[in-house]
Design a protein around this nucleic acid. Structure first.
Length: 571
RNA sequence: UGGGGCGUAGUCGAGUUGGUAAGACGUCUGACUCUGGAUCAGAAGGUCGUAGGUUCGAGUCCUACCGCCCCAGCCA
């Protein structure tokens, strides 16, 4: 895959692979897999894993499988497998003909289990889950062996087959590996391999009523698919001895498990549980709410696959717990969109401006460049007339020193048009609100003319007569704090939700070219930010999601002045 | 507390066989600009968790300590 992306920095996984290639451990092959459980939507943390696994395969001329780890029918649904496939594809990765399901291997896994029983390494246990917990011991005390641990091979075989046949109720028995109840690694204290679950599975229906546990299943899946490097997150580190143990007992092909640190990001939450809670609790409008860190949310927000891949390559891979600043994600987005997004003029909070000395009824078609970063994107015509809308924030009646936009008696350039001067402010006599601005223009200053007068600012505008009415959804971070999960005792992470993370603006005025913009298309609203057409748009009434603002020097100045004056207030 | 991991600038994160610390984001300066965008130039910011030791020399090796994360689901 040629993504035109810079070389990825080295990391400890590449070192392992390089070394394995040198020693010919896997015959020169690199074969990875992305193994999601279809029990939720993918998020940016999964994107890190996807980019890692598919990226490595691509860079080393290997392969990467998409495999659903669907071993728990009570949590998994078809809806999730479809969304996951769509998200991986959207991110730009291709599993070709290698779409697999753990459930495809259930029969084979069962046979492997029989093999383990036959060599005396597994047994059917009748302990209840509570009893098993008691027998397991604690972190500091060894466990005790199950009283069922020494059943004969024949009895184990018989019982295990009858478990499969559905003779026993849920929870009544398990198949367990016979390892070591005194192991300091609790995962090795005779772990459960199969549990009885009379539940129908999204893939196998009611064929099975015993389902394999993760530790038993995962290594087998990797082994069956001849995976070379089985990359997973840090919490599975303590499971690696078990992963290895099963495959060694079976004499099966054994991949190398490698663990890396999962992604955390500021101003958001990443756990499936919390994400689900946000959706179920209606704190957001579904999994694809543009404030969600889900792939579908980011997509709807207007993120590009390229920007997400770029981000994943830039954050690197390591074993240290870390939290990446969301500003880096946003930086990658701007970097990508800056090159590609067509520029367009849109006024989000309009204020009317009448250019008094401009002839009534006259309309000029002015040339505007579509993208100064890319001349091949050409130009377009935009209409200019006597009455226009400008951004309310671009005018201040009593501006501070560092504000150099429009104010009474001051001049600014209207982008692609003329220099205008504010002559008068018209207010509602009752409320004192500014209703409109009366301006004059200098006919000698039309864009492209040889005139060389400089003004301190250029602002965007839309001709009132030609404006298209639009809705804009202004998104901000979903959480107030960098680490929403880090709360005092008794407090809830949801207390950190930013209740102003969505502001819906009606009556926005956008240039006519946007009237029928296709859902999903992305634009830069000049001076404001990048916006993406939402699927809620109707013909002639587009809805825009603000993807991300432009970097805004003025916002920084305004903010620091504000906090400066607050400091003074408190003194 | 038993076991397994991890600790390099505000945040990520490179640091091959020991020769006194890449890069990116963020922050701050300046230049340029018909987007206060982009671009360009530059700056600040690190006792490499701490303390010892080996060595001419240690982020890299040794020892001890400290801190953080994970494991006691018939979840993954």
């Amino acid at each position: 895959m040629n993504l035109n992306e810079p070389a990825k920095p080295s990391n400890f996984i590449r070192e392992i692979i390089d070394n394995d290639l040198q020693t010919d451990k896997y015959g020169g092959r690199v074969h990875t897999r992305f193994p999601p459980e279809p029990n939720g939507y993918l998020h940016i943390g999964h994107a890190k894993s996807i980019c890692l696994n598919f990226g490595l395969a691509g860079d080393y001329n290997g392969k990467c499988n998409l495999r659903f780890d669907d071993t728990n029918p009570v949590k998994e649904e078809e809806e999730y497998v479809e969304s996951i496939k769509a998200d991986v594809r959207w991110l730009g990765f291709d599993w070709e003909d290698r779409l697999f399901f753990a459930s495809d291997y259930f029969e084979q896994m069962f046979e492997y289990a029989v093999q383990l029983i036959k060599c005396g390494k597994a047994f059917v246990c009748d302990l209840s889950s509570e009893q098993m917990r008691e027998y397991r011991g604690t972190l500091t005390e060894p466990g005790r062996e199950s009283p069922w641990r020494n059943r004969s091979i024949e009895e184990n075989l018989d019982l295990f087959n009858r478990m499969r046949a559905g003779e026993f109720p849920d929870g009544s028995r398990t198949l367990r590996a016979k390892i070591d109840m005194a192991s300091p690694n609790l995962n090795m204290r005779d772990p459960v391999m199969y549990r009885i679950l009379h539940a129908s599975h999204h893939n196998t229906g009611d064929k099975w009523c015993v389902y394999p546990m993760y530790d038993w299943a995962h290594g087998l899946e990797d082994s069956i698919e001849k995976i070379t490097h089985s990359i997973c997150t840090l919490e599975f580190e303590a499971h690696r001895p078990l992963y290895d143990w099963y495959l060694i007992q079976l004499g099966a092909y054994r991949p190398q498990q490698i663990e890396f640190a999962r992604l955390n990001m500021t101003k958001t939450v990443m756990s499936k549980r919390k994400l689900l809670e946000l959706v179920k609790g209606k704190f957001v409008n579904g999994w694809d709410d543009p404030r969600m860190p889900t792939i579908s949310g980011l997509r709807r927000r207007g993120y590009t696959p390229e920007s997400i891949r770029l981000f994943c390559n830039r954050i690197g891979v390591s074993k240290a717990d870390s939290t990446v600043d969301v500003a880096l994600l946003e930086h990658c987005l701007r970097e990508d969109l800056n090159k590609r997004a067509p520029r367009v003029m849109a006024v989000l909070r309009p204020i009317k401006a009448v250019i008094e000395n401009y002839p009534e009824g006259k309309v000029e078609e002015l040339d505007a460049v579509n993208n100064p970063e890319d001349p091949t994107m050409g130009t377009r015509k935009i209409p200019f007339s006597r009455v226009i809308y400008i951004e309310r924030d671009d005018f201040m009646e009593d501006p501070p020193k560092k504000f150099f936009r429009l104010a009474p008696g001051r001049e600014v350039r209207l982008r692609y048009a003329y220099i205008v001067k504010c002559e008068k402010v018209v207010k509602n006599p009752e409320t004192g609100d500014i209703v409109e601005l009366r301006c004059t223009y200098d006919p000698e200053t039309r864009s492209g003319s040889a005139e060389g007068r400089k003004v301190k600012a250029t602002i965007h505008w839309v001709s009132a007569e030609h404006a298209v009415e639009a809705e804009a959804r202004i998104y901000d971070h979903l959480f107030l704090k960098d680490d929403p999960g880090n709360v005092e005792e008794g407090a809830d992470w949801k207390d950190n939700i930013n209740h102003n993370s969505l502001e819906t603006l009606q009556g926005c005025k956008v240039e006519p070219s946007l009237a029928n913009a296709a859902p999903g298309s992305r634009f830069q609203f000049e001076r404001l930010g990048y916006f993406c057409v939402d699927a809620d748009s109707k013909n002639g009434k587009p809805v825009f999601n603000r993807t991300v603002t432009l970097k805004d020097e003025w916002a920084k100045i305004a903010k620091s002045e504000k906090s400066g004056s607050q400091k003074q207030d408190s003194n």
